[in-house]
């Protein structure tokens, strides 16, 4: 273990010699140190878990946008201000939204339903298929997201997404949150508050907000765990996928749509 680490370091050192001549001059004795014992690295996520969500449109209250607000707060979306001189309506079409309210009316019955729309975290995500650089990817635990270190801003994923779930950052991001970095020229979308989940939390911001309002329209959890709340709820009653005809096996399911 230490051995390989040491050879690795030697190799790096060799490779970097050119770049770090100055550093080498003032840092003799690198070879002498014994490798610092690394902190336990934590575990990589696996496909034992598949995060998913059930949204009960019947419980989604008309005029309530607490999930949208919560998402904006959690991910710092509303820290992005309208640039000076930009027209209000154009900016409104350009500002990123990870979750949005949609109100639909049935053409026959006239029945009106409210529901939030966001990334549906498909098992077969078209955005991942089309991404030229693998920036758009699906994590082992089912979260579809953008690796913004690889995103070149081509927007092909936005063209491919059947749910219009993705946004492009049209302006320089001045105010940033540590937990949710984001910046100009990349595409982004809902990632189930991945920073929370990785830190051991089990809820998303939108879900918490919905519960706090007393609506409880959003249930979130592990679809692979038959005992999880979301699995139980899905088992109990029927639910639908939006655009089920595309056979994308979405991780977000709806009831009452």
């Amino acid at each position: 273990m230490n051995n390989t680490q040491d050879t690795n370091q030697k190799r790096r050192q060799f490779l970097l010699k050119g770049a770090a001549v100055t550093a080498a001059a003032v840092a003799p004795g690198v070879m002498l140190h014994t490798a610092v014992v690394a902190k336990p690295l934590g575990e990589a996520v696996t496909d034992a878990v598949r995060w998913g969500m059930l949204i009960d449109a019947a419980k989604c209250a008309d005029g309530c946008d607490s999930c949208v607000q919560a998402c904006n707060d959690e991910n710092g979306l509303d820290l992005l201000q309208k640039p000076q001189g930009q027209a209000e309506d154009l900016w409104d079409q350009q500002i990123p939204k990870w979750i949005r309210n949609v109100k639909v009316k049935d053409n026959l019955s006239g029945h009106v339903t409210n529901l939030p729309m966001m990334c549906q975290h498909c098992e077969e995500p078209p955005c991942v298929d089309v991404c030229p650089t693998t920036a758009s990817f699906r994590r082992a635990d089912g979260i579809v997201m953008v690796d913004r270190h690889l995103c070149i801003g081509c927007r092909y994923c936005m063209m491919a997404c059947p749910y219009k779930a993705r946004s492009f950052v049209h302006d320089v991001v001045e105010h940033k949150l540590t937990r949710a970095p984001r910046g100009k020229g990349c595409v982004e979308s809902c990632n189930f508050c991945v920073h929370r989940l990785d830190d051991g939390q089990t809820t998303t911001a939108c879900q918490d907000a919905c519960a706090k309002e007393g609506h409880d329209a959003i249930t979130f959890g592990d679809l692979n765990d038959p005992h999880s709340e979301v699995s139980q709820a899905l088992k109990e009653q029927s639910s639908t996928q939006i655009r089920a005809d595309l056979k994308l096996n979405t991780g977000v399911r709806y009831r009452g749509v």
Binding site: V130, P132, T133, C151, I152, G153, R155, Y156, F168, C186
Partner: peptide
């Protein structure tokens, strides 16, 4: 017109072979 033309090198070195876009490059 890319959002990040400075990352052209990424497009040239990281390919997703399922993507028509990558094939087009």
């Amino acid at each position: 017109d890319l959002g990040r033309p400075d990352r052209l090198i990424v497009a040239m070195t990281t390919y997703n072979f399922k993507s028509i876009f990558a094939w087009n490059i």
